[in-house]
Design a protein around this nucleic acid. Structure first.
Lengths: 266, 266
DNA sequence: ACCATTGGTTCAAATAATGAACCATTAGGA
DNA sequence: TCCTAATGGTTCATTATTTGAACCAATGGT
């Protein structure tokens, strides 16, 4: 593995749950030698990608990442262009809508919008990484990924996050044909015990699946009626985002979603 | 130089002016061998920090940078907390306010706010890199940087951007004591011919200068009255941002700004 | 049909990365 | 107060990776 990859691995260690690290701590987590980790961090620090917190010596992400993100959004406004669709989706369903991007084999939350309709709602955080096997977004993406990538993902450990999490790779695989046919993945309590959700895949210009758009609701509110509304709105929203991003739907999906949109008027 | 630094240099090559690159192009610009550049890009691509544009083979920044920025802002809300101050500053002065951060020796625009008061205004872009010698922000920061860093910055070429740009290092140095005493740097037409601007430095918890906050206006509108209003509002705004970020002003500055705020009521 | 340029690849030579052991500083507890 | 056990940071001989000139294949313009 290249040296650069190790440095980027270090950046990947940061998360909402662990936003700062001591040197030894990070070395342990990333599996690098302490001296190596130190040298890598020093280089990242020199460029402002990490910084040390004032008095303590812990490391956290530095301001240089803001510049890159700003440039990326200015040139390829991914988040900005998807937000209006997310807002419409949250409004139409009365539930939390969210959008995830497939980044380097990981499904990363890029944006979300809450609905103001209810006192309770499914909560989300930007930049969180979603497990493929336990989320509707994960299933939606898995169903449209090349077999090689699916195999790679399902060969990793599939942790049990709730009593209902599907932890067998074969069981996950068995779900995918239906997801592929419908163009929508659904889960119930597999990620968070009291949340049910549905999600649809997104595609790039080459027709590759690059992410998903979803809706999550407290289990108690997910009636069959709401479920159908969500499926309807998701088909529309996924088509919209894919179109805005200049993507292209697989033929079969375009057809099936068309029928969903015709058959179940809002 | 470490390999990681070379990879980070590649990321640093991206800008508003040049948001995508062919391989050969980027190799030339970054001064790396084409093979090296390719290998580095491949590693960055594997992690989603760059991506190749659909049909063409050009590279651009990838979506992974969005995740990092999102995490950084969630944990250290730099931009978000400064924006209200920028808005107040733009409102109070009727001109464009902006905030820059010292990142890895470069002064980087983090945020800006336009005023709706006039049909013309000084234009800005996020993530742009400001030349120290030609901007009020640059002078404000230079005046409060350790001598070693000042020397490093002024030893680099100082390009003539307009007929009025100060291009002599000694001439820049001569300006700094006044800026240090006032706590405010000012320029007139040194960056963009028809823009005058003023800026004040920002400080971190250790009292180090980490950026600046400024106001830029079309030269024709910068009367002595407006200039005094801007100086007044800048002193306030810089104190506010420094306080919000948990920074500490140098003693002398705190005193001088206090007198500005007392002496020139709004 | 040609040439110029591009992205991408190869492999021996050169260089940089590695990691066990070490030091210095700090925090906490007895 | 002193001792212990962490921590962040450093060293340097060994090792493995990076490097770059030359090369290839593909594309596009003339």
């Amino acid at each position: 593995m290249g040296t650069v990859s190790k440095a980027l691995d270090l950046l990947g260690c940061f998360s909402h749950q662990r936003p700062r690290f001591g040197l030894t701590e990070l070395a342990k987590l990333s599996g690098t030698n302490k001296a190596t980790c130190f040298r890598l961090l020093s280089e990242l620090q020199a460029f402002g990608y990490v910084e040390q917190i004032g008095t303590s010596r812990e490391y956290r992400l530095g301001p240089a990442v803001l510049r890159l993100a700003s440039l990326r959004e200015a040139h390829v406004p991914t988040r900005e262009t998807a937000l209006p669709v997310l807002e419409a989706l949250a409004r139409a369903t009365g539930e939390t809508s969210h959008l995830s991007l497939l980044i380097s084999g990981q499904l990363t939350t890029l944006a979300f919008v809450y609905s103001a309709d209810h006192g309770t709602k499914a909560m989300m955080e930007d930049a969180d990484i979603l497990p493929f096997h336990a989320t509707s977004s994960g299933l939606a993406v898995l169903a449209f990924l090349p077999e090689a990538e699916v195999a790679a993902i399902l060969s990793r450990p599939l942790p049990r996050l709730t009593p209902d999490t599907t932890v067998s790779a074969d069981a996950i695989r068995a779900l995918l044909p239906a997801v592929r046919a419908q163009g929508i993945g659904e889960t119930a309590g597999t990620f968070e015990a009291d949340v049910k959700s549905a999600a649809a895949p997104l595609f790039d210009a080459a027709g590759r699946c690059t992410g998903s758009i979803g809706v999550a609701a407290p289990a108690a509110r997910m009636t069959e009626t709401l479920r159908l509304v969500i499926r309807h709105e998701l088909a529309r929203a996924a088509q919209d985002v894919t179109a805005i991003w200049g993507g292209r739907l697989p033929e079969t999906l375009a057809t099936h979603w068309h029928s969903i949109l015709q058959g179940e008027p809002r």
